[in-house]
Measured scan of single mutants.
Amino acid sequence: ETQAGIKEEIRRQEFLLNSLHRDLQGGIKDLSKEERLWEVQRILTALKRKLR
């Protein structure tokens, strides 16, 4: 995994995270989306740690 590859994956995950946040802010309670949001946040945290 290169730095560029990790950064690209971070961009993808952040896009997905923002999309999930928008969907959930629409007021629709969706447990699967909430679980996915937490999963994406965990992935992002792990990726950012790899960059250090």
Rank of each mutant, 00 (worst) to 15 (best):
E14I: 13
A46N: 06
I6P: 00
L31C: 11
I43H: 06
L47Q: 00
L20H: 01
N18F: 10
F15K: 14
E1R: 07
A4C: 10
R12F: 06
E34Y: 15
R36L: 13
E35R: 14
G26D: 11
R36F: 07
G5E: 14
E14Q: 10
R42V: 05
L37I: 14
K29P: 09
G26L: 13
L47W: 01
Q3G: 04
K50R: 08
L37C: 08
L24M: 08
Q3A: 10
D23M: 09
T45R: 13
E1A: 11
L17R: 06
E8P: 01
E8V: 03
I28V: 14
G27H: 06
K48Y: 15
Q3F: 10
W38K: 14
L44Q: 00
G27A: 07
L31F: 09
E14K: 05
I10Y: 02
E34F: 15
L37P: 00
K33L: 15
E9H: 12
W38C: 14
W38F: 11
V40K: 01
R52M: 12
A46M: 12
I28F: 08
L51F: 04
D30C: 03
R36H: 07
Q13M: 15
N18S: 09
H21C: 15
E39F: 05
L47N: 00
K33N: 04
K33C: 06
S32W: 11
L31R: 13
L17I: 05
E34R: 13
E35Q: 13
D23T: 06
K33P: 04
G5A: 15
L47S: 00
L37E: 01
S32P: 05
L20T: 01
K50N: 04
T45M: 10
L47E: 00
E39K: 06
G27Q: 06
K33H: 07
R12V: 05
K48T: 03
E14W: 10
G5N: 10
K7S: 05
T45L: 11
A4G: 05
L17S: 01
K48F: 08
G26S: 14
R12C: 12
R11N: 04
E8D: 09
N18Q: 14
I43Q: 07
D30N: 05
L47I: 01
E8T: 03
N18G: 05
L44S: 00
Q3E: 11
Q3C: 15
S19W: 10
K48Q: 06
H21F: 14
Q41F: 12
G26R: 07
R52N: 10
R52K: 11
I43T: 10
T2A: 12
E35T: 08
E1T: 10
W38A: 14
R22T: 07
D30E: 04
K7N: 06
L51Y: 03
A46F: 09
I10L: 02
E8C: 13
Q13P: 01
T2I: 09
W38Q: 12
S32I: 13
E35P: 03
G26K: 09
D23P: 02
E1S: 11
K33I: 15
Q41R: 12
G26P: 06
E9S: 04
H21Y: 15
G5R: 15
V40D: 00
D30S: 04
R42F: 04
R12H: 04
E1M: 11
G26C: 13
L44P: 00
K50W: 04
G27P: 09
L31S: 12
G27M: 04
L51G: 00
S19F: 07
E8F: 03
I10R: 02
K50L: 13
H21I: 15
E14D: 02
T2S: 08
L17A: 05
E35A: 12
V40S: 02
K50Y: 04
R49W: 04
E1I: 10
I10F: 01
R52C: 13
L24A: 04
D30W: 03
K50V: 06
I6K: 01
Q41E: 10
R52H: 12
R52S: 10
K50A: 10
I28C: 10
E35V: 09
E39C: 05
R42Y: 04
H21V: 15
I43M: 07
V40G: 01
L44K: 00
K48H: 06
G5I: 12
W38P: 01
E34C: 15
K7E: 08
Q3K: 10
N18D: 13
W38H: 12
H21G: 04
I10G: 01
L44G: 00
L24N: 04
E34N: 06
R11D: 03
G27E: 08
R12K: 11
N18Y: 12
R36Q: 13
K7C: 15
S19I: 12
R36G: 02
D30I: 03
E39A: 06
R42P: 00
E8A: 14
E39T: 04
K50H: 03
L47K: 00
E1L: 10
L47F: 02
E9R: 06
Q25H: 12
R52Q: 13
Q13I: 15
L47V: 00
I6L: 12
R11K: 10
L37H: 06
K7G: 03
T45N: 11
A4S: 08
R52W: 11
Q25S: 08
R22C: 13
K33T: 12
Q25C: 15
K29H: 12
R49P: 00
Q3M: 14
G26T: 11
I10D: 01
G26W: 07
Q3W: 10
E39I: 05
G27W: 05
I43C: 05
A46G: 05
S19E: 14
K29T: 09
E1Y: 08
R11A: 09
K29E: 06
E9C: 13
D30G: 03
F15D: 15
A46S: 05
T45S: 11
K48E: 02
L51P: 00
K29C: 13
K48N: 05
L16Q: 03
K50I: 15
E14N: 02
E34Q: 14
L24G: 02
E14H: 07
R49C: 11
L44I: 13
K29N: 10
L51H: 01
Q25F: 06
L37M: 13
I6A: 01
D30L: 02
G27Y: 04
I28D: 11
Q13N: 09
Q41S: 07
E35M: 13
L51N: 01
L51E: 01
H21D: 04
E8L: 09
L31G: 07
R49L: 10
D30T: 03
K50M: 11
F15E: 15
I28N: 10
E14T: 09
E34D: 04
K7Y: 09
I6C: 08
K50F: 04
D23C: 13
R42T: 04
Q41G: 03
G27K: 03
L44D: 00
L16G: 00
E1Q: 11
E35F: 11
Q25V: 14
V40Q: 02
L17H: 02
R12N: 05
I10T: 01
Q3R: 11
V40F: 04
H21N: 08
Q41I: 15
E14F: 05
Q3P: 07
E34I: 15
E1G: 08
K33R: 09
K50C: 13
S32K: 13
L17V: 06
L44C: 02
I28K: 09
R22K: 12
G5M: 14
K48A: 03
E39D: 05
R49F: 05
H21W: 15
R12W: 05
D23Q: 12
W38I: 14
I43K: 07
K48M: 08
G26A: 10
R52Y: 12
N18I: 13
T45D: 13
